[in-house]
């Protein structure tokens, strides 16, 4: 147990990632409001992006451009992946907000229980 905590403390980024992921999942599952569900989903997606950025981090390294001075470079690929993942996340958010706004206009409510009640 102690080793586990020690290993976790050496990687605070990963602890933050796991907490964010679980928090987001919890919100998505427990809340009945559609917008809050989306907030949870957004946190889950962000936590994954945070993980990608965190794995690419290297202390004291610079951009991968050869300048002759510092030879320690950061691998730029995780950041490129992150960029694409953010675009995908935004597209998902756009579609989901579009759906939510149509649900609201149709049923006059954002609460899952009320909407299901109206559907019968």
């Amino acid at each position: 147990m102690l080793e586990l905590i020690e290993a976790a403390l050496r990687r605070p980024n990963l602890v933050a990632f796991v907490l964010l992921l679980l928090w987001g999942l919890y919100i998505t599952i427990t809340h009945h409001n559609y917008v809050k569900k989306l907030v949870g989903l957004y946190i889950v997606q962000t936590s994954v992006i945070f993980f990608l950025v965190a794995t690419g981090f290297k202390e004291g390294a610079t951009v991968p451009v050869i300048t002759g001075g510092n030879d320690d470079y950061v691998n730029p690929l995780p950041q490129v992946l992150t960029l694409t993942a953010i675009v995908v996340q935004i597209a998902t958010l756009g579609v989901s907000l579009g759906l939510v706004s149509r649900i609201y206009r149709k049923f006059g409510s954002l609460d899952e229980d009320e909407v299901l009640e109206k559907l019968g």
Binding site: L41, A85, L99, I103
Partner: peptide, 19 residues
Amino acid sequence: FRYLLMGALGTAFYLLGVG
């Protein structure tokens, strides 16, 4: 909307695995 919620979680997990 339900499909989206499940599907987007699935995508997030897949991306995590890729990471």
